[in-house]
Design a protein around this nucleic acid. Structure first.
Lengths: 343, 343
DNA sequence: GCCATCATTCAAAGCGCTTTGGTTCCGATT
DNA sequence: AATCGGAACCAAAGCGCTTTGAATGATGGC
């Protein structure tokens, strides 16, 4: 069923039917009702391709998922982010189109998105430091919102981010308050902007209290369970092992807990752990009582907010870039306790 | 840059340019080269919307992600599946469009996909038993491939699935061979077809060896870490605790391992664990030595294969439904050992 | 009763592409 | 020389929608 057929059956012109359906004022209310009725009856939905060809709007938003060619890892955060964004899109009549792209091809994909005209804007995932994509998108002229930020970027752009620096600063302070001085930082890949900021927060808190950081207890890698396990195991075996771990991901924190238990130690008594928690739906941090003391911030909510920002930008272009900084919430769980007295 | 402009600059008609770009034979090779050259020079990519309006092909494939309204959980498997599928799509010039849909709205979404014409086909995720979506899609006439199967479905349809029954049967036999008799099954939600099949495999192996199953040691729920932890904890505390756990997900297995350790037991010695492993990129099961004995099957590969199947179906319709059954591979890790002798 | 006004409706152009049904040109056939 | 056929190209229609510009009645003021 297309517009032509529908209008034929109703006995009206395509123009009027189209206007009735799209809520234009110059159509009689009685007529509009008739049209809406018929549309429902015949199960009519306008063809998106035709519609967007006519309007110049794609009614779709792109997500480019960079796929590192080296470490073939899909960001585990991604599913939840998409879920949050997707709901917002549906509510606003947008489709979501996904591109999985080997990171070296990224530039051409963005250009193609513009040329092919199949999205009205896009969300930039996983910003790196001095991320070149931001300049590129500005040059291309495609509206976008960055999930995260790109340190070193001078031109203004729209973004939504968790305040990683303050979250990790506060988490560090929490450990320092408990008496911990020998704190390990198990960070994400520091090519990623968020990881850089988290380290900054950690270092700032340590510096402010005059506590030295130990470079051999600061690691940076992809945040798997095994990474957490191996790193923690190694550190716990070392001379002068850390009494506390500050971790960038709940998944790695699981590995750290395992290493602690393997070493015959008790988490929360012998060794403390504070982690960042993206509140992934399949990885809840305990039920009523949180297992880990954590800086929490819902990635899913972030997805919904990013989507809304982008839609606003698309609907009213020429405005200045917007940004939004979310604060993570520190929730105290069973994984932290006072620093043990070392003989 | 659009076709009109491009052909004007080259000094050819739109027809010829279009044909040159699309590889039609009735164009002089020298001309074709000239056209391709110019296209590259001006960075021309045809507008997808126009192209698909003209051809009737959407050049896109839909993924409907059902979002349970009760348990707001995003299937953790999803990211990896998408990654696999996405690569195949790009290679074939297809876009991937995602819809996050509250499960009660699913039917209307499928109908809309057809009416709006923005996809050429779709992948059905998370099939349930007697899943009504299959009949619906057949009725609507939209090509589709199911990732998994729907027991109770009589009409033929295309699917790709892991042989869950045989995987769990074999895993159970492995435990039985080790002398275990008291085996717990920590299953996924049994409204899901895969979970039903896994239980069947478990029960069948037990029955064949004449070992009774214990209903209070067979659980079914969403596969979170906490679910594994709590369930295992409870079972381990009970009279006559199981000596082995058969688990449907590596994530829940992590929780089970935690419960085992909390109980002061050693996994692989006091209690054995075999898990299904979807080989998610961020949850690798150990590095060289697998941590868990596991039935492994890459969800990412499944995504790539599903995508290819669907593209084949789209390209040559009217053929009979195709299907593909993958066998999971049983890899022995450190989490299993002979059944302990109980005093 | 007449013309301006307004509320409704419509025909047709246009979005950027593919594709049908030519047309043109040139060498080969008779 | 007239005709044919094939290679190479082109004009224009059509995909299903929106939107411009115009038409049609009905209404109301004078």
């Amino acid at each position: 069923m297309n517009l032509k057929e529908l209008s034929l059956r109703i006995g009206l012109s395509q123009t009027t039917v189209s206007r009735a359906l799209n809520g234009y004022p110059e159509v009689n209310e009685a007529t509009r009702r008739r049209v809406l009725e018929a549309a429902k009856q015949y199960n009519y939905s306008p063809n998106t391709r035709a519609k967007s060809l006519a309007t110049g709007q794609a009614l779709a938003i792109g997500h480019v998922i960079p796929m590192s060619t080296k470490h073939e890892m899909v960001n585990p955060v991604f599913g939840d982010f998409i879920a949050g964004a997707g709901e917002t899109y549906s509510r606003n009549g947008f489709d979501m189109v996904l591109s999985i792209v080997p990171d070296r091809d990224e530039e051409s994909v963005y250009r193609e998105f513009k040329a092919k005209g199949n999205v009205d804007g896009l969300i930039v995932h996983g910003p790196r430091m001095n991320d070149s994509r931001i300049d590129l998108l500005n040059e291309i002229g495609l509206p976008f919102v960055v999930h995260g930020r790109a340190s070193g970027q001078t031109l203004p752009y729209s973004w939504l981010d968790v305040n990683n620096t303050s979250a990790f600063k506060r988490a560090t302070e929490f450990l320092l308050d408990l008496g911990h001085r020998n704190i390990a930082l198990i960070n994400g890949l520091e090519t990623m902007d968020f990881a850089y900021r988290r380290r900054k927060g950690f270092e700032r808190a340590m510096a402010e209290r005059g506590v030295a950081t130990n470079p051999s207890f600061m690691r940076s890698d992809e945040m798997t369970e095994v990474y957490g396990y191996q790193t923690a195991q190694e550190m716990l075996r070392s001379e002068n092992a850390p009494t506390a771990f500050l971790v960038a991901s709940l998944i790695s924190a699981l590995g750290i807990r395992r290493a602690i238990q393997d070493a015959g130690l008790v988490m929360g008594r012998d060794v403390s752990v504070v982690t960042h928690d993206d509140m992934l739906s399949y990885l809840s941090n305990g039920d009523s009582v949180p297992v880990f003391t954590a800086a929490r911030s819902s990635v899913r909510d972030a997805g919904a907010l990013c989507a809304q920002m982008l839609i606003d930008i698309i609907n009213s272009p020429n405005e200045n870039p917007k940004s939004r900084l979310l604060e993570a919430e520190l929730t105290v769980g069973a994984s932290t306790g006072p620093a043990p007295n070392r003989g």
